[in-house]
Amino acid sequence: MSTFAEIAISVLLLVGGAFTLIGAIGLARLPDFYTRLHGPTKATTVGVGAIVVSSVIYFSTLGRGIGVEEILVTVFLFMTAPVSANFLAKAAMHLEVKTTENTRGQTWDQ
């Protein structure tokens, strides 16, 4: 395996792990439900995406072909993350989950 591929894989792995961790820190640290929604939908999706891309590069440099499963997993995660965030936000508005004091603007429930 070439040095370039090794560096690319390692960097992608570390970046992916860091983003996943940051998403989880956001989930644990931010003050209310709506702000916590931001960590998983963005940071975690990108983190897992980077890890999966590094797996694609790794197996293709080993000469085992391009993984369709990996690409499907990535596409699926990027398509479903906003949908589940949206559903959860609707559920939270229906249940009138508390927001932090410095939130401006109003929720609605229809």
């Binding site: 939908t41 906003p82 949908v83 949206n86 229809q110």
Partner: peptide
């Protein structure tokens, strides 16, 4: 709405 949820600091809620 999906785009808004994935991009800068915003989540499309409803």
């Amino acid at each position: 709405v999906s785009t808004i949820s994935l991009t800068p600091g915003t989540v499309g809620a409803d």
